[in-house]
Amino acid sequence: MADTVLEVRDLSLEYRSRRGPVKALRNVSFDLYKGETLALIGESGCGKSTMGFALIRLTPGTAKITNGNVTFVDGPNRINLMEMSENEIRRFRWTDMAMMLQAALNAYNPLIRIQDHFIDTAKAHGLNNKSEIIARARRLLTGVQLDADRVLPAYPHELSGGMRQRVLLALGLLMQPKIIILDEPTTALDILTQRSIIELLRKLKDEFNFTMIFISHDLSLAAELADRVATMYAGQIVELTDVFSAFEKPRHPYTFGLTRAVPTLHGAVEKLESIPGSPPDLVFMPSGCKFHPRCPFATDKCKEVEPKLTAYGGHQVACHNWQQVLEESQKAR
């Protein structure tokens, strides 16, 4: 595949809590390729949003990155984000890497107009010519299929959920970042609005050529948009592969379980199966493979030794019994 734009190595993060450190990310390593769309999927509390924040060091005060590096590769330049000063990273966000937050409304300042969101953002990143900023904002708003004349003077509460999500996309693209991280981009939206945002993301990606990471608990969104899918569980990536293999030839029992838990609209009604149990406590985690208490494939080895994410011909999986899982998943099809 293409060049790498982001290298993540052994990234670990802990949240402080009264009960002890919450290990939200544990030695996460992966490469993000230029121009691809990577989906991070998993249940609430698996560390997927934390990962999004950690990649641009936008973590809250209670969090601490305890280990690891995130390297941004720009042609011959390699920039380690963990070594940047506060000022440098502030510049870096938005110009090179932008993140769009989950709840579209909460991402805005309710007291200022949309146009001031654009102006403030641009000024913070060194653009001072107001008419140029507004001209750029207009182009972007038109690009996300909004009426700039109506939207620019409006306050955030005057816009519908879908419009807010569109403005957020336009705002994110203002500084033409190379990487965009979207946290649950369509979660609170209605079906038809969700569809138009999906189509819009495709169009914008063609137009602006950015690389996209999106975080979602919604498997169907990953099926729709992603080139590769990373399944997260208990603060780790447990499977990372192209979207077709992830859904058709899953090798991790958790990914396999997720694909069997979601109903489809087309085809026959098949009995859905839940994954038994619930996600682990990230303070007191089970021994060995963190999934073993819920796993139908678990053996004694799984209780003792935590499997490492290992590549088998481009398909990365962290499971001792992946061959068996693959076999089962093929039988189930």
Partner: peptide, 16 residues
């Protein structure tokens, strides 16, 4: 019909 056509499905080949 529009709703049904708009819903993404958890099957990449089908949904695309």
């Amino acid at each position: 019909a529009a709703l049904m056509s708009a819903i993404p499905e958890a099957d990449p080949r089908l949904t695309r």
